[in-house]
Design a protein around this nucleic acid. Structure first.
Lengths: 406, 406
DNA sequence: TTAGTTAGTAAAGGTTACTAACGAACATCG
DNA sequence: CGATGTTCGTTAGTAACCTTTACTAACTAA
């Protein structure tokens, strides 16, 4: 619609009431629209773009099911055998795909030549910067199987020092990579924008650090930098079997989450999606939080509090505390589960603290505070990926970004 | 990843704990993954697909800014003048685009021929089935300007009768459409799947009614059927100037919402996204709801309760009740705003009830229960579209579905 | 041995968008 | 007023992509 129309419509009998929370700019809503509606550059599809897309489809099909023939791919992807042959021959040239030999089955017709992604011919580097005392990193093959590990201690390291610690870790890992590195994925705490710039990460003393650019220019390798919880969500989705509408909640020193809607990560209007740690829970007060509010989710679920509870001698009291923490999580997640009709909520963090009464408390609360008819199929569980969840997510981001595989 | 890998990984030291809420099937998570990962048919890009996409970009650019030349389009969309000329000549052939004449400016060079979408040469029909007593419908031009209106009374009508009422309304509107109808958009209450089948709409006595198929086959015109609140969100986004990450909350007899994330409507794992009416709010009880729970959002915000409050003689008591209702809305929205980092929350419903203390209560509550640093830019406001919000949303769905314009 | 089936390749054809080049129509400047 | 430069839209030719059609290779089944 045109701006003129918007004005005509707004000036009707339905007077517009605008209340702005906070001190955002006071631009008229129509201005926002104009920006939102701009055709983003590169949206056009040229033949080359189409080819890249189809190529990604082939890789994706091969990635999921090792041992497909060209004819299988043609049926799966929807292109003709001829085109698939052409695409595959490109991929074999680049060594991304290899022939496995003839299919052993006894069927009429010429036997098929099975193909697979060259899963061990390339590696990916994944980093997890979310821990306060240590940066962890891995080298994996294209399957996400870890072939190398490394870490650097970063206790109290901030600013440039922390960036240098990233370099140190990468130097080590890249030197140990036995095959060409497809890309480097880095999960960072804080707010990270779409370009991989860490807009704000208080714990690391970073603000507007263009980490993705720094890393990719320094090592001449494509890099992907994103929020740690978002990466964890990606990891859970690809390697943990999570569905297309889910939320992964990380509980550690703080509480963060990654939200996946329709199979896509949610970034939010300010790249701060998933930051639920400082939402007030319930209407009955709560402890004072470092942020100044009372009853934030983090005050109920921070690992210090949970650990104190776990250390308690009295089993009943221990259970009660953990269960209540779980209930608080359920209270704050219920509106999100309902609004997004999530299919899964997955917890990541200390197994001993989360897996018992806490998880049950969350489950029960979610059930009693939402409509069973709509959300009865909700799955609530722990992740099975353990500590590697962020680095594996980083690997997935690289796979997605560089090969179009997810 | 392969199933084999998933199993290998799961069998590690990080034992998996699964708690299922409700009585969903007990399939292993890996099975879900296999389904989620299937390459959807038609994902391949053939030259024809690319052309359709580029064509939609041209239409979209023209739709937003009337009076672009071919050269302008080339710059805007990113294709060459030659290709744009070719696309435009197709569109002119189909009468979808018209030439407006030469640009009046005094500039060096050959004067440009201005183009526009043939905004009045086609019409769209939009229906709103969300009201309990009446189905409303409009005929609009491509701009969304209403040219015809109609309604049918449906008090206590359910099942086949309600479907027939839709037909009656459409017969009327289609007869009065003065130009070719591009498509029919219908906003229905209840759960609607991606095919436009009304899975469940208790108020209308519908379950698994393939309304989109029925309508498109009966009238030989493309139809789009979706949930009413979702359509309202679409309407607000295109005609109300809302941004890419927002939530539209409809408050009437019940409370429903439409959620837009990254510019796309959220459907959810069971097509029930936005159904927040029966989420329990707060931790201090509340009235008994028709659903059997206590303290559902609807018990705080249903229009009967609000109207009773508004009718009260005592101004202070009236304000207090409305403000408290707003606060309850804020309490339940805060986790959603945080999890999705929404930029806007927009209310639609009776202006006299919502626009005053209620809106302020919601605003204040959202501010005090989320982090100002992250969500300070949140805009909370009433819609400016009034009663037409659903039918306009339906029009947008048709524009998007048939022309690729949004 | 013959018929039928499946896999992969080769050649030709049609669609799409691009580059290069050109004429038309204007403004500006000497 | 004519020369010059700019912008618009079109024409002609090219490159990339996918498809259709046709072929060979290799196998099973009768």
């Amino acid at each position: 619609m045109t701006t003129k129309d918007a004005q005509r419509r707004s000036s009707g009998d339905t007077a517009e009431t605008v209340v702005r929370t906070g001190q955002g700019s006071a631009a008229a809503p129509q201005r926002i629209k104009a920006l939102a509606g701009a055709v983003r550059p590169g949206a056009r599809v040229r033949p080359e773009t189409a080819r890249r897309h189809n190529r990604a489809l082939v890789l994706q099909a091969l990635y999921r099911a090792e041992g497909l023939s060209r004819a299988d791919l043609a049926r799966e992807v929807g292109l003709t055998r001829v085109t698939i042959s052409d695409l595959v021959s490109d991929l074999i040239q680049e060594d991304l795909v290899i022939e496995l030999g003839l299919r052993p089955d006894a069927r009429p017709g010429k036997p098929a030549t099975l193909l697979d992604i060259n899963r061990e011919g390339f590696t990916i580097v994944g980093l997890d910067l979310s821990n306060n005392s240590v940066f962890r990193g891995v080298v994996t093959d294209l399957d996400g199987s870890v072939v190398e590990r490394a870490e650097v201690s970063v206790r109290d390291m901030t600013g440039v020092d922390a960036v240098n610690a990233v370099y140190t870790l990468l130097d080590d890992l890249l030197a140990r990579a036995s095959a060409p590195v497809v890309g480097i994925g880095i999960g960072s705490p804080g707010i990270v924008d779409l370009d991989g710039t860490v807009v704000s990460a208080p714990n690391l003393g970073w603000s507007d650090v263009p980490l993705q650019q720094l890393v990719s220019e320094r090592y001449k390798v494509p890099a992907q930098v994103a929020n740690d919880a978002n990466m964890a969500a990606q990891g859970e989705r690809s390697f943990g079997g999570a569905g297309t509408d889910m939320m992964l909640v990380r509980i550690g020193r703080g509480v963060g989450s990654g939200v996946v809607v329709g199979g896509h990560l949610v970034y939010g209007s300010g790249f701060a999606a998933g930051e639920i740690g400082h939402v007030v829970v319930g209407t009955d007060g709560g402890d004072l939080c470092a942020c100044g509010k009372r009853g934030c989710l983090e005050t109920w679920l921070s690992s210090p509090r949970l650990e104190a509870a776990a250390a308690e001698g009295d089993d009943a009291a221990r259970e009660a505390t953990l269960r209540e923490a779980g209930e608080r999580l359920g209270i704050s997640l219920a509106p999100v589960v309902a609004a997004l009709n999530l299919g899964e909520v997955i917890l990541a963090g200390p197994h001993n603290l989360l897996a018992g009464p806490l998880l049950e408390g969350t489950s029960e609360t979610l059930r009693t505070r939402t409509m069973a008819e709509l959300h009865g199929d909700l799955t609530l569980r722990m992740t099975a990926l353990g500590r590697d969840i962020v680095v594996l997510g980083a690997v997935v981001m690289v796979l997605t970004g560089q090969l179009g595989v997810s």
